[in-house]
């Protein structure tokens, strides 16, 4: 596939992110910017999940725990080593990758179902460890992060500045995810998703690449965790337990894991929908449940793929042509 063609999938995402970076010019409310920051932080983790789930076909039900590893790494580095935001980003990414390897190596060698349960159990286990970690992890009440964040002497702690920082990292994640999808490595992962037995017969080390994909998704989660810790300024175990993990899986499914716009759409929708509809937490949980069932039944490739397919159907009907281009573009 020529590079110019594949770039077409990245372009709409970048344009959208540039537009989103201009949002502060409209002087939105603090509440709106905060929600947008939370959404963006999730989207970064979702781009990692899209490599894991969308490309490789493996579902993680404990991904928030890897975000938690990133967040706690940042908080502990700041407290004990006086290491700030920027250096925490790569270090927390590495830390989450190492933890992903430790979970992935024993569980991904076996089978997919096994892995879903292992990741879920890991999420629970991490919450227990953090809660019982005494002063080191701050136990149930968690840790504060006090280090200021600055770039070239300019404070980023201002809400809109932090928002722009998050948009920047979302763009980096989207580009990284796009580069993976369009590389030889991405093709290998898709081969595993499509048919493991055939992939192995062609010389692909299926187990190793599945673990690799999980490690890669861990890096995204770790970076997302640092941004979360420095945004909230306080982290606690319950933020990284099974519910947030299920939400992440839900967002990537709602948006669609295989298209580059999917994680962005999923993250934004799930963050803003309850706000737009004025729902309380219980109502919004019910709404998510209903949305998830609807998406799985009606749009198995996610909302964005569904919209594109629908668009092609309408367009092709008007042009009175068979729906061949829709098949071409779907699932890419």
């Amino acid at each position: 596939m020529p590079a110019s063609h594949s770039f077409r999938s990245l372009l709409p995402v970048l344009i959208l992110l540039v537009l989103l970076a201009l949002v502060p010019l409209l002087s939105p409310s603090n509440r709106f910017v905060s929600l947008a920051i939370s959404a963006g932080i999730n989207v970064i983790a979702l781009y990692g999940l899209s490599v894991l789930f969308g490309q490789t076909g493996i579902l993680s039900m404990g991904h928030a725990a890897l975000v938690g590893i990133g967040a706690y790494t940042a908080a502990i580095l700041a407290r004990d080593f006086n290491i700030g935001f920027w250096l925490s980003i790569p270090l927390a990414g590495i830390m989450a990758a190492i933890v992903a390897a430790l979970i992935g190596i024993p569980s991904l060698r076996v089978s997919g179902h096994h892995f879903v349960i292992m990741t879920f159990a890991f999420g629970q286990l991490l919450a227990i460890i953090l809660t019982n970690g005494g002063d080191y992890t701050g136990a149930a009440s968690g840790l504060d992060v006090q280090q200021p964040v600055a770039l070239f002497g300019l404070s980023i702690d201002v809400l809109t500045h932090y928002y722009l920082t998050v948009v920047f990292f979302v763009a980096l994640s989207a580009i990284a995810s796009w580069a993976i999808i369009n590389s030889r490595y991405g093709r290998t992962l898709r081969a595993i998703r499509e048919n493991e037995k055939l992939a192995a017969s062609l010389g692909i080390n299926v187990g190793r690449h599945k673990i690799g994909a999980f490690i890669v998704s861990g890096v995204f989660a770790g970076v997302s965790g640092v941004l979360l810790a420095y945004f909230l300024r306080h982290i606690s175990p319950s933020q990284f337990s099974s519910f947030p993990s299920i939400y992440l899986a839900l967002m990537v499914m709602i948006g669609g894991a295989r298209l580059l716009l999917g994680p962005l759409a999923g993250g934004i929708l799930v963050a803003f929908l309850p706000e737009l509809l004025n729902l309380d937490p219980v109502q919004s949980r019910i709404l998510y449940g209903v949305c998830l069932i609807a998406v799985i039944l009606l749009l198995p490739n996610g909302l964005i793929a569904g919209i594109i397919a629908g668009w092609h159907k309408m367009f092709d009907r008007r042009a009175a042509q068979p729906s061949e281009p829709a098949v071409e573009r779907e699932g890419k």
Partner: peptide, 22 residues
Amino acid sequence: FQQAMAFPGLSVFENVQIATEH
């Protein structure tokens, strides 16, 4: 394989490309 196999969701070209790359 006895059951003819390919990577169904990928293009014919990408199927063979993956095989040559490995």
